[in-house]
Design a protein around this nucleic acid. Structure first.
Lengths: 145, 145
DNA sequence: TATTGTTATACTCTATAACTATA
DNA sequence: TATAGTTATAGAGTATAACAATA
């Protein structure tokens, strides 16, 4: 077998660095998609998360941020006519977020951008893609109780 | 619940999602290290980047941020007695950043935290670590002209 | 003229706390 | 009492533009 050149640095740290470089590439592609669509990153991320009608609170959970942020983000999306706040008849405290037609179109465009970025960055033969998926899956799996 | 049935989604998008989840785990570990050391993230990242004496400008390049940010970051590190600004005798415009003894100690502690996080997150048999490194390397490699 | 580091300024993202209206 | 959403506010991170000292 071959001798590794200079294993003075643990491989896990190499993996850390590679992961952050990969993330930087992905982030760059997504940011380009956002500016392309004329949306600030936070609004774009929210838009990408909106499928079925969802209460504000749940969107906050999906975005992993405080509920107070969601107000401003949804304000922006509403100002652009991409989303509506609908009262929930079953609980008058909650507002269901629903995409408008234009919102649906914009989200579809965003999805296409994201898919394009992912396709360009993860440009590997399918077998390697699958190997990578299996490895990454094992890293992010939640440890069961 | 390891394999959600989603055959209609391209694998590259799955990889995108897994990568971001992995990054979130890493980020969490690093943030914990930063608060553990009593340093704001930006200062911690700068500290981790400081080895040999380095001009402010170069630190900005390493951190991939504008030079105007570095002033404040280094102010913070200097206030904590971790770094010194030394005039460069060969070019009196530049200031060389040099870690103090305490700065060196703190950086070593930070390195240990980072290594610990990396070790915990990338907790795989060595063969799988190497496979992952090879795959990631191919993804971040710069395309040659 | 160009460059290093600084300052002033502004914009975004994020969090906390207090408020309202409902439950 | 507790919860959904809002508001006010503050902090951190980042960017641009203008400036002084130096090259």
């Amino acid at each position: 077998m071959s001798t590794p050149p200079a294993p003075d640095r643990p491989i896990s740290q190499e993996l850390l660095e590679l992961t952050f470089r990969l993330t930087a590439r992905l982030r760059g592609g997504l940011d380009a998609a956002h500016t392309d669509l004329g949306l600030p990153p936070a609004q774009a991320q929210a838009l990408a998360s909106l499928r079925a009608p969802v209460p504000m609170r749940e969107l906050a959970t999906m975005l992993a941020c405080d509920a107070s942020n969601v107000t401003g983000i949804v304000d922006g999306l509403e100002r652009r006519g991409l989303v509506e706040r609908r009262p929930d008849p079953r609980d008058r405290r909650v507002k269901q977020l629903v995409l408008t037609e234009e919102g649906e179109r914009r989200r579809a465009a965003l999805d296409a951008h994201i898919a394009k970025t992912a396709g360009e960055v993860f440009d590997l033969p399918e077998r390697d893609q699958e190997a990578l998926r299996d490895l990454l899956s094992r890293l992010v799996e939640e440890p069961d109780a």
